[in-house]
Computed example of a mutant assay.
Amino acid sequence: MRLISISFTKIISIVVTASLLSACGFHLRGDYSVPDELGSLSLTSYDQYSTLTRMMRSQLRINEVNIVPPSENVPNLHILGESLGERNLSLYQNTTAAEKELTFTASYRVTIPDIGDKTFSTSVSRSYLENPLTALAKSVERDMIEDEMRQFTTGQIIRQMARLRSDIKAGHILTKEDLDSLDEQDKESTSDVKSTE
Rank of each mutant, 00 (worst) to 15 (best):
E148T: 12
V34D: 04
Y32C: 11
S121V: 14
R57W: 05
N66V: 10
E99V: 09
A137C: 05
T122F: 03
E101D: 02
I6D: 11
P113T: 05
Y92W: 11
D36N: 15
S45T: 01
Y128M: 02
A18M: 08
E146H: 10
I12P: 03
S19Q: 11
D186I: 15
F104M: 07
T134Q: 07
I67N: 01
L102F: 08
L91G: 05
A137M: 08
I62K: 10
M55V: 06
L52Q: 00
L80S: 03
Q151L: 05
K187M: 06
L91E: 10
S139L: 09
S50T: 06
M55H: 09
I79C: 02
S33L: 07
T95Y: 03
V15G: 09
T95F: 03
M1Y: 14
D183F: 15
L174P: 05
R165K: 14
M55C: 07
R165G: 03
V110Q: 01
G85P: 05
R126E: 06
R163S: 12
V110C: 10
L41K: 04
S71K: 10
P69G: 08
S195R: 06
V124H: 03
T96A: 09
S50F: 02
K10V: 12
R87Q: 04
S189W: 11
E37H: 09
L133A: 13
E64R: 14
I168F: 01
D36S: 14
H172G: 03
A97Q: 12
M56P: 02
H27F: 12
R126D: 04
S22N: 10
D186W: 13
D147L: 10
L21F: 15
S83V: 01
D183M: 07
D36E: 13
P113S: 05
Q93S: 13
R54V: 09
E99W: 02
I4S: 08
P113C: 06
G30M: 04
G155E: 09
P69S: 12
E148L: 08
K176T: 13
E101C: 00
S45W: 03
T103W: 02
I79D: 00
T122E: 09
Q93R: 12
R165W: 05
S19G: 15
A23M: 08
E177N: 13
R165Q: 14
M161V: 11
L20E: 01
I157V: 06
L133K: 11
L129S: 14
L3D: 15
I157N: 00
I145D: 10
Y108M: 02
